[in-house]
Simulated assay, not measured.
Amino acid sequence: MKFLIDENVLYANKLFQCFGEVKSLPGREIFAPIPKQVSALIVRSVTKVNKALLDGSQVKFVGSATSGTDHVDKEWLQQAGISFSAALGCNAIAVVEYVLSALLYLSQRDGFSLHDKVVGIIGVGHIGRELQKRLNIFGIRTLLCDPPLAEAGIYDENWQSLETLVNNADILTFHTPLTYTGRHSTWHLVDDSVLAALPDGRIIINTCRGAVIDNVALLQALKSGKNLNVVLDVWELEPCISLDLLSHIDIGTPHIAGYSLEGKARGTAQVFNSYSAHVGSEIRTNLQDLLPPPTIRYIHLSNGVDEEILRLLANLIYDIRKDDMHLRRSMTIPDVFDRLRKNYHPRREWSSIVVEIEDYVGCSILQNIGFRANYRTCN
């Protein structure tokens, strides 16, 4: 058994070696012809998996340690008799905490309260649903837009159109797959007409796929004086991103929103367990087997939880400004986009820290928005 694995799939070598020989390559260097002895391929979103890559190979299993699957031709894999597994939802928590970190930073910088804003969530899968839950628990109103789910009758929700969100939401955050055809295609979902319709002062966040927003149209709008606050983690034509666009937005990062240590480990574990089941093995792994202890394990709060306390806790674990700074300072270096992703720091999720708090309501809020919290009466 031989595995060809993207070198950035965390812990993959350690896990898959129990089944056979492992060869690692950068994801963008995995292309045809696949060596004949390779029987399993483990990738991320930067590798296009299709007939052109695998036709004539001996690959019988493809795993993608990612939540999205638009880089994989699943229909062709099925026709070719190749088993496929993705790590659906593995990075949902990381992306949600990235979005919340961005909003907490912007609210402090610009002097507004998130409780006074309406957040429009476009795409209500694993990530959108988790974001809605955390925002609502913290008392922030949300509007939901997901036409395919609305038509399918999924969830009992008051679904809204994108036009309604454009007119009524102060913040638009995108969590859709990238699709090019059909009535609900998402390629350039945000185009000239949507940007023109957006009232000034709106916040746009894109953490799904770069081409969901027309980057050229966005740059033109910002250059022409459109007053928008923009957070981009994903870009059209990445890794060759627009430096001009980067210079006009508020926060820019190199496609790392889902790159928490927990999210990476969760994705690898899901694919590993799927492969193990595929070959009839009973070997399984979990996060506790893989993750190191966090640098900060405990913190004590004597008061309740408000927006400022949440901001302090969030920044203690992950400060989005550092990722923005690293991208802006490094963009003149060749291949820096992929280098920043490959060498990304070990970012933890909110659940990595235990918060002891002397406020019962605050304890409940923290528990429900992702922290491990314990209620402690004061002595």
Rank of each mutant, 00 (worst) to 15 (best):
I137R: 10
N136W: 02
V230H: 03
T69K: 07
V49P: 01
Y105P: 00
V46N: 02
C145I: 14
I333L: 12
N273R: 07
S161M: 13
D250K: 08
R348F: 09
A92W: 13
R376P: 01
I320F: 13
D244N: 13
I317M: 06
T285E: 11
Y11A: 00
A196T: 15
V190K: 01
K133I: 15
I283N: 03
R129W: 11
I140P: 01
E356N: 08
R328K: 14
G89T: 06
N379L: 13
R341D: 07
H184M: 09
Y360M: 09
S242I: 10
T164F: 09
L54C: 05
F31A: 02
A52I: 14
Q37M: 07
F174I: 15
S161Q: 12
E308Y: 02
P346Q: 08
G128F: 14
A197C: 05
N8I: 11
S276D: 10
G362S: 10
K117M: 15
F61M: 04
A150M: 14
W159N: 00
V96A: 02
N13Y: 11
G81C: 14
K60W: 04
G267R: 09
P293I: 08
F16C: 00
T176H: 11
L10S: 02
S57T: 09
Q37D: 15
L172T: 08
I256T: 11
W235L: 03
E130P: 00
S83W: 07
Y259K: 01
E21M: 08
I317K: 02
I121T: 05
L149N: 04
I256E: 04
L218M: 08
V9K: 01
C208T: 09
G120Y: 10
